[in-house]
Nucleic acid binder design. Structure first.
Lengths: 185, 185
DNA sequence: CTAGACATGTAACGCGTTACATGATTAT
DNA sequence: ATAATCATGTAACGCGTTACATGTCTAG
């Protein structure tokens, strides 16, 4: 089974939307909020080749009227299955503590690829984990605040607030899905 | 001039508080909210050796009553200067967009090592950058929301909210410093 | 005709991950 | 005795960063 990096999943997700070239992906990473990923060719082209080597995407040269070589990739059936499996993995407390960025990436492509019900399940589980972790963090801060320098205390406060906001977001996102239940658009 | 990784700076910051061994550092990464950093020996011991090789820290074996070998590190004068230089670097929009975690790390040790006035300057500059970036992100979301799938929209909404919360935090943190101006304690 | 966007690659390098290894000390 | 904790290391591996290289097409 292929081992896919976060960048690999990001690219695979984009290829689910429409067939794209490495250059297309680069432009997205350079010009949109997906820009947390590197748009450097030294990252993207090898990543695409790896995905292809592992059978997750298939690339073909588009040259019909184009003399310009341009390799366009799309996910294979296996790639789609692997992507969906990644998206629907259970959410652990460790994910919430160490891999929040990965969780958000998993969610961002959710209803295109795994469906609305998977999105709802995801948000329910995420909410559960956040409801348990957030107060624990807040408690840690309260317990150790006295012996921490102001800047350290404040930096941690920032982290706690970030998680608390995430929990509010998660709940409101869930509500957004549930309110639309069965509503066609 | 030495090139120091984020993990390197995190360790260097901890060594500013008191001399510590690699094992001490590991325990901190394993048991506190600093746990965003890896506590694996394969990361920490080589990082300490690099810091030492670059003249940023000095390690000495503590063995007096201890037969157990235990290498305790403390920053050198050069290490302290380098750390402070890193902390007081100007804040760019790129830092805010791509390296928020590094900014928070820089701030978290601020008043132990660079002083209260540096902390205030940092927060003022951070607030400025966030005041410019946050509405731009929000605007992007508004402009593209129509053509985005719900989960994509919501994932981006989460990012925007995170930045908005960060801006509120930054302002309140600044207020916290300014209210104490000249107050001993 | 030339600057800039289009488009894809490769090579060296550094560092973090994973897994394994070693041995001393303390607690049960 | 022996399991757990203390404590430090090393080797293979993968991937992202940086920098360089190459060539095409389009706009002014």
């Amino acid at each position: 089974m292929a081992n896919i990096s976060l960048l690999g999943y990001a690219i695979l997700g984009l290829l689910h939307q429409e067939p794209r070239s490495g250059y297309d992906v680069r432009k997205i990473f350079a010009n949109t909020p997906m820009g947390t990923f590197s748009d450097s060719p030294g990252a993207i082209y090898p990543a695409l080749r790896r995905l292809e080597k592992d059978g997750l995407v298939r690339g073909q040269l588009r040259s019909a009227s184009d003399l310009r070589r341009r390799r366009v990739y799309r996910p294979t059936r296996y790639g789609r299955r692997a992507f969906k499996a990644w998206q629907t993995r259970p959410i652990s407390s460790d994910d919430v503590i160490h891999r929040m960025d990965e969780l958000l990436l998993r969610f961002s492509f959710m209803d295109q690829t795994a469906g609305r019900s998977a999105a709802v399940r995801f948000l329910k589980n995420l909410t559960r984990e956040l409801r348990s972790y957030t107060p624990a963090l807040r408690k840690y801060l309260k317990a150790n605040a006295r012996q921490m320098p102001l800047s350290g205390k404040l930096a941690l406060e920032s982290g706690v607030r970030g998680y608390e906001e995430l929990l509010r977001w998660s709940r409101s996102a869930l509500a957004r899905y549930l309110n639309r239940k069965g509503v066609r658009r």
